[in-house]
Design a protein around this nucleic acid. Structure first.
Lengths: 117, 117
DNA sequence: TCGACGTATCTACGTTCTTCGATATATTGA
DNA sequence: TCAATATATCGAAGAACGTAGATACGTCGA
């Protein structure tokens, strides 16, 4: 999809829903951010990270999510790409943690009282 | 999709992302809510309603969105079903307005500091 | 009554998404 | 060095999605 090589940073590029003049670009970034949480598996993954409060090994997510390992890897990648989750390699293990600032920015985007991001 | 007749109310059924024990049902409801805003056209539609501050005739949304009339109708329906937008019939015109409480609830769901919906 | 207009639905098409088995790569421990 | 383990990627199948043309329905004004 992105052939130019420039990476979109949805979390930093999107504007509040009530922004006076939402550009096409901003709308796309905002939609991508919301879409990242538009799947039950990813909502549960984020929930697991939020309640854990500390980085969680990816291997410990497979069972609670009830999905195959490639599927969990796929969803984790989506969340990392959206900026909502951070991935940290520790030897052969991959640890995921919540990007709390990104999630808070998401809440700010949905906040109609917010004027600016 | 829903053959039993029971209507899901995503806005009232979903729980915060940081909820201690997110059920499968709640995760699905939360995902549906986020997914409703997971398309640029719907983000712009919500933005138009948010900045208008008053009900907007659907016929006035076609041009700014740059989409065909059936497509706008389709997106509007999705937003109404998600509870984010209210639809009001006035003669042959359909007026859309933002369900501000629902959008605020969405922001609360994304708020990690919130304990309960 | 009739034509114009606004809207929803039907249908179809191409794209994207979710899922998982198979497989490749890398790291650890023996 | 070798087997076991964790993870990512590839490839494929089925479902869901976005879009718009055609069409049907209802309302308004003449």
């Amino acid at each position: 999809m992105n052939t130019t090589g420039e990476r979109l940073e949805p979390v930093t590029c999107c504007a509040p829903l009530a922004a006076p003049a939402l550009s096409e670009q901003e709308a796309k970034a905002t939609a991508e951010l919301f879409r990242a949480l538009g799947d039950p598996a990813r909502v549960r993954l984020v929930n697991l990270l939020a309640t854990a409060g500390e980085p969680v090994c990816m291997c410990e997510l497979i069972e609670p999510l009830g999905l195959a390992q490639p599927t969990v890897s796929h969803h984790a990648k989506k969340l990392v790409e959206a900026g909502l989750v951070e991935r940290e390699q520790r030897g052969k293990w991959a640890y995921l943690s919540l990007q709390r600032e990104a999630v808070e920015k998401l809440a700010a985007v949905a906040d109609l009282k917010e004027v600016c991001c």
